[in-house]
Amino acid sequence: MIRVLVAEDQSAVRAGLVLILRSASDIEVVGEAADGEQAVTLARELRPDLVLMDVQMPRLDGVSATRQVVAEGLADVLVLTTFDLDEYVFGALRAGAAGFLLKNTEARDLLEAVRAVARGEGLIAPAVTRRLIAEFAAKPVRQPAVDPSVLDALTRREREVLSCLGEGMSNADIAGRLDMAEATVKTHVSRLLGKLELRSRVQAAVLAQELGI
């Protein structure tokens, strides 16, 4: 069972999310939070596998709550956003969010996203990925926040996998492009995350964008 904590300040939206999650036989909703502070407190108490986190909440916003949950190793975080909240995306990714979904995501896609994050794959909704790439493309060239020399530790194949992550590709997509087994892709992802000292493949995708690879 995948144990999920739902953090959403709008009660009607929260009820809808809970209803969808409880429709799956392999997902258990272990708690509900109406604000960021409560989300962190419940994550400490309940130790869920995943927190489904809204970004705009009272008392403590979703980005700050994500940072605390990830820093304490309490759970993976799957963030809910809308096109109007792009300014939160980068902050939450750098805080260690394992993925991003839009609030208008279909029920079946929400369930598959929860399962994907629980498998350690991470996920960014395709529409959000396109926005991220467009955002990077629109920005003037600047000094990367990370020293490009960190890539020296990666093998050629690991760099190729990192580049694919930067495009928001799944393990299956990467396996198809690079002509390798999906299990091999997972191994490469795991190794490059360790070498780059990153918490998730989503952070790797952001790093790939920042370094222009």
Rank of each mutant, 00 (worst) to 15 (best):
V141Q: 14
D61P: 03
M180Y: 12
R59L: 15
A137M: 15
E87P: 04
A75W: 06
A145K: 13
A125K: 13
A98F: 10
L111S: 06
A113T: 12
M57F: 07
E158H: 01
R156N: 07
D76P: 06
A107H: 08
A65S: 11
A92G: 13
M57E: 11
G73F: 09
L132M: 14
V189T: 08
Q68S: 06
A137K: 11
V161T: 00
L60R: 09
A138I: 08
A153N: 01
E121V: 12
V69M: 06
A145P: 03
A175H: 04
D86Q: 14
A98L: 09
Q56G: 06
L154Q: 02
D84I: 08
A153P: 00
R119M: 08
D61H: 07
K139H: 15
S64M: 11
L102N: 02
A118Q: 06
R177T: 10
G73I: 09
E87A: 15
L80S: 09
R94P: 02
A65E: 04
A145N: 12
N171P: 07
F100R: 12
E158Q: 06
R59S: 13
A116E: 12
R67A: 11
V63C: 04
G166W: 02
L123I: 15
S149T: 01
R94F: 08
Q143G: 06
G99H: 07
T105N: 09
V141S: 12
F83Q: 13
R159Y: 04
V185Q: 04
P126C: 10
D173C: 10
V146I: 05
E158N: 03
E121D: 13
A125I: 04
L110T: 01
V161M: 04
Q68E: 09
V89D: 00
K186C: 05
A92Q: 07
V77K: 06
V79S: 07
H188R: 10
M180C: 14
K186P: 01
T81G: 01
P58T: 14
L85R: 05
A175D: 09
L102Y: 03
Q68G: 01
A98Y: 02
A127N: 05
R67S: 12
D76M: 09
I174T: 07
Q68K: 10
T66Q: 05
D179F: 15
D76K: 08
E167V: 04
L110S: 00
G166K: 01
V89G: 00
V161W: 02
R94N: 15
A137S: 11
L162K: 03
D86I: 09
G122T: 15
V117T: 09
R67I: 10
A118H: 12
K103I: 05
R59H: 15
R159T: 00
